[in-house]
Design a protein around this nucleic acid. Sequence first.
DNA 1: GTCTATATCGGGATAGAC
DNA 2: GTCTATCCCGATATAGAC
Lengths: 208, 208
Amino acid sequence: MENSVTPAEERILEAAKKVFHCKGYDGARMQEIADEAGVNKSLVHYYYRSKDNLFEAVFEAAFSKIMGRLNEIFFSELDITTKIETFVGYYVTFLSQNSYLPLFILNGLYEKPGQIKKMMEKNHLSPDRLMEQIRVQVKNELNLDIDPMHIYINILSLSVFPVIAKPLIQVIFGLSNDRLEKFYEERKTEVPEFILKALKGYEDNQNR
Amino acid sequence: MENSVTPAEERILEAAKKVFHCKGYDGARMQEIADEAGVNKSLVHYYYRSKDNLFEAVFEAAFSKIMGRLNEIFFSELDITTKIETFVGYYVTFLSQNSYLPLFILNGLYEKPGQIKKMMEKNHLSPDRLMEQIRVQVKNELNLDIDPMHIYINILSLSVFPVIAKPLIQVIFGLSNDRLEKFYEERKTEVPEFILKALKGYEDNQNR
DNA sequence: GTCTATATCGGGATAGAC
DNA sequence: GTCTATCCCGATATAGAC
């Protein structure tokens, strides 16, 4: 099996990422991808027989990139407080530098409900292990018996949504690009603080 | 100017909503919209000269539907606690019944950064009024001097993201549809609780 | 491997009969 | 207002020369 990747093939994949990420499957044009890669349109088909195949390659790369890092942080040896701070800090930074990625993935998941489990396994993602990991840590370190799923989704929501909703936020609050950048920067400390204060609230309740 | 809406025109708009919401602008087909409305393809062009026009009508309706209600709740006379509970309850219910809507709107905002201010004004949305409204209420009722923007976005994130990320959540946690419904139901109480506990945390800090 | 040329199809839009 | 027929372009994909 061929192992080395030719420069052309690589350029095509990079170009495809750029175009698919911004325009989605239906909006992307094979011609535009070819132009972006600086090759002939036929060459794109030579390497990736069809638009579908090319899209799959792009989607899988994006999914792995996001989930791999997420996985890494959540299964690390950090204590829960540091873990949340690390997670939020990393995601807000990473996502605002790649602001097209999360929406691309969400759209992709709606279009392709199949074959995703394959990717989950490839990225060594196990729902049960993740849940258990959070539950144990919340129990041991914070002494709380609360559903880890809601906590996990809350953390994700607070980190990801503001990036996805960038244009909406600009419209609702009438922000300039500079002011928006500052807003994201603030969130790196605001969000962990918000989460930890909430968790502290549960603690007070249960120990009362 | 013609005021009454013919049944056909109405059926076309409803059909267009269904198709555009699910497939987006590029994915939607005029033929499919016509079929869905039970009319000939030409009739769609007769009423809405182009695909662009039709899409605008659909987008504006969706935007107004979501923002109108949001506006209504945030400018109501409720105290902040009730307001948050009402908002989350309403949005989690409404959005999970119309789970395609938020993603449709976010995608649309990326594609059409123009002409949105027109809609903001049409819906009487003023960034400044909204911010001031939240700031005053948080100050008066909770005695807190914190940035209302982060609070507002946090509430929105926790309400909207889990609905948008439905397929992602199912994949990450391996949930059945029934279990997911239960999860959303739980969030109607979990999310306001989470938010209010966090706010309480700020209160303790500042009064210490 | 990389290009040119072309097949084939589908979609948006319009003309014109009724 | 509603239909049939058609135009025309653009997009995916393939064949085949080099």
